[in-house]
Simulated assay, not measured.
Amino acid sequence: MGLLRSHDAGHERHDPEHLESLLGEYHDVHKGFHPESRAWKLLHALAFVLGGTTFISGTVALFFPGYDTLSALLYTIGSCGFLSVDVQEFLTFEGAVLRANIAMSLVGSSLYVVGSVGFFPSVFAWSPLIGIWGFILGSAVIGISQAIKTYRIGATNTDGAFSLRHLITDTDARTSAGVETGACLGAWCFFFGTCLFNRGPLEGPDSVMQTVLWTWVAGSCFFTLGSAFLCYRHFVMRVV
Rank of each mutant, 00 (worst) to 15 (best):
L42I: 13
L42N: 06
L42V: 13
H44P: 02
F48W: 04
V49D: 06
V49H: 09
L50K: 01
T59E: 11
V60A: 15
V60G: 06
A61R: 05
L62I: 05
F64P: 01
F64G: 05
P65F: 12
P65G: 13
P65K: 15
G66M: 08
D68A: 15
L70M: 15
S71T: 06
S71P: 02
A72I: 06
T76Y: 03
S79L: 05
G81F: 02
F82M: 08
L83N: 02
S84T: 15
Q88V: 11
Q88K: 08
Q88R: 09
F90T: 09
T92M: 04
T92D: 06
F93L: 14
G95Q: 09
A96F: 12
L98S: 10
N101H: 12
N101Q: 14
N101M: 13
N101R: 15
A103Q: 08
M104G: 07
V107R: 03
G108Q: 01
G115Q: 03
G115I: 01
S116R: 11
S116W: 05
S122N: 14
S122P: 05
S122G: 08
V123S: 11
F124L: 09
F124A: 12
S127D: 15
P128A: 15
I132G: 03
W133T: 08
G134Y: 04
F135E: 09
I136F: 01
I136N: 10
I136T: 09
G138M: 08
V141G: 11
I142R: 04
G143C: 13
S145I: 10
S145F: 08
Q146D: 09
I148W: 08
K149P: 00
T150S: 15
T150F: 02
Y151I: 00
Y151P: 02
R152Q: 02
L164M: 09
L164V: 10
